[in-house]
């Protein structure tokens, strides 16, 4: 399947349209003022910040989506996204040793798997116009799931310590003692995405599809794109959280401050490196 994204009508709402949609913010501010919520300043700041951020991103995207530009710029953009996502994860789960390297690896592996399939099977053409937005979807969705799974695991290491030590005291390794909590955290991270995927089109019309329809694309084509995006999101979240779970699994002893398997992280990194290399080779073959 190759979706034609070119030749679509441009959706130009103009400054007047932008200002009119901004009026909705004024409604929100008015309600906040009326009900004494004290959110006026936050609403205005959020709206202004989103406007500035997206204008900058829109300007920067023009640099990479031009078919005449080198794909190197898309690659640079991609690397920046990966590094930023890993840095964000490291900020949210600072207690986990080597979390920056582990999450960077997880995002990279997720990108290789999901984008490898989409580009390898030529669902989309390999160009800046497709690489950057699709990678953004992969990294953005993986980021929230990874932070969620990381926090869940850290909470388990703290709040369920008695139960985990109960398993350790029976002679289980740190990895085995922690395994049920890792599985629970992974389920917690994946279930919302699965539910969202099941409810799509019934409860809500997803953003990519709405955007394409507003831009004048035929709804049937928009649906095809949306389905591929949903699968992309589900696949990327599953891949990233699974890699993170493997890393946490190898890292269990550190999390529990126990005296077992201190070299486990290094071992896991080596295993993941091999997995990345294997998948890269697979993608080359897929081309």
């Amino acid at each position: 399947m190759s979706v034609a994204l070119f030749g679509m009508d441009r959706a130009d709402i103009g400054l007047a349209g932008l200002a009119a949609s901004g009026g909705l913010i004024a409604v929100g501010v008015g309600i906040s003022f009326w009900r004494g919520l004290g959110l006026e300043r936050s609403l205005l700041w959020a709206a202004l910040r989103a406007l500035i951020q997206l204008l900058i991103v829109g300007w920067a995207l023009q640099l990479v989506v031009d078919p005449n530009d080198s794909l190197i710029w898309s690659g640079v953009w991609l690397l920046f996204m990966l590094a930023f996502a890993a840095w964000t994860t490291a900020q949210r789960a600072a207690e986990v040793p080597k979390v920056f390297a582990l999450s960077l690896l997880a995002y990279a592996l997720s990108g290789v798997v999901t984008l490898g399939v989409l580009f390898g099977f030529q669902v989309y053409e390999l160009e800046g116009r497709t690489i950057v937005p699709l990678a953004g979807i992969v990294v953005g969705n993986s980021l929230s799931a990874t932070v969620l799974v990381s926090r869940q695991i850290l909470e388990a290491a703290s709040e369920q310590r008695g139960v985990i030590e109960g398993r350790l005291a029976l002679g289980l390794s740190a990895r085995d003692a922690f395994q049920p909590h890792l599985q629970r955290a992974l389920r917690t991270a994946l279930v919302p995405q699965i539910e969202t995927t099941k409810a799509v089109g019934i409860v809500a019309l997803p953003g990519a599809m709405v955007g394409l329809i507003l831009a004048g694309v035929d709804p049937a084509d928009a649906v095809m794109v949306q389905i591929s995006v949903m699968y992309l999101v589900l696949g990327s979240v599953a891949t990233t959280t699974t890699v993170m779970m493997m890393a946490f699994h190898a890292n269990s002893s550190h999390l529990l401050n126990s005296s077992v398997d201190s070299d486990a992280v290094t071992l896991c990194l080596a295993q993941c490196d091999r997995a990345v290399a294997w998948l890269a080779a697979w993608n080359v073959l897929a081309w």
Partner: peptide, 20 residues
């Protein structure tokens, strides 16, 4: 190795850790 030791040295705690 801790797992080997712990199978020879059992432990019970103040709050009984119950598994699912």
């Amino acid at each position: 190795p801790p797992p080997t030791l712990r199978r020879q040295v059992g432990t019970i705690f103040q709050r009984a850790p119950l598994f699912e």
